[in-house]
Computed example of a mutant assay.
Amino acid sequence: MSESSIGDLFGRVAEDAKAYARAEIGLYRTIAAHRIAKARNGAIALVAAIFLLNAALIALFVAIVMALAALIGPLLSGLAVFLVVGIIAFVLVRYGAGKLSALAGDAEEKAALSAGEHLS
Rank of each mutant, 00 (worst) to 15 (best):
D106S: 08
P74W: 01
L52T: 11
L9G: 15
I64E: 00
V13C: 14
E24A: 11
I36A: 12
I25A: 13
I58M: 09
I64V: 03
L46R: 13
V85D: 06
V91K: 06
L9K: 15
E3P: 15
L27V: 11
R94W: 07
A104W: 14
G116H: 02
L9C: 15
A69C: 01
I88C: 10
F51G: 12
E3G: 12
S101E: 03
S2Q: 15
E15V: 13
A63Y: 03
I87G: 09
D16R: 10
A97M: 06
I25S: 12
R94M: 08
V47T: 05
A37I: 10
L100Y: 06
M1E: 08
G78M: 05
A115F: 01
L52K: 14
K110R: 02
A67G: 04
L60D: 05
A43S: 06
L60K: 04
A45S: 11
A17R: 13
K38M: 05
E117V: 03
A107Y: 02
E108Y: 10
I50P: 15
N54A: 07
G42R: 11
G98R: 06
A33K: 04
A80N: 11
F51H: 11
F90C: 04
L27H: 12
A67Y: 08
V84P: 00
A80L: 10
I50T: 15
G96F: 00
G116N: 09
I6C: 11
K110P: 01
A55F: 08
A21P: 00
H34D: 05
D8F: 00
I72E: 09
V81D: 00
A21F: 09
V91L: 06
A14D: 13
S2H: 14
K18A: 10
L76N: 00
L113G: 06
L79N: 14
R12F: 03
G26C: 02
L113N: 02
E3R: 13
A56C: 04
V65M: 03
L52I: 15
L113C: 05
D8Q: 11
E15T: 13
P74R: 01
Y95H: 15
L119V: 07
I88S: 05
R22Q: 13
S77M: 02
D16P: 13
E3Q: 14
R29T: 03
F51V: 15
D16T: 09
S4T: 12
A102G: 09
L53S: 14
L27K: 15
L53P: 00
I58C: 05
L60C: 02
L9D: 12
H118D: 01
L46A: 13
A48P: 15
L83V: 06
R12V: 08
F10M: 14
Y20C: 03
S4V: 05
I50R: 14
M66E: 05
N41Q: 09
L92M: 07
A69E: 05
A14N: 14
I64G: 01
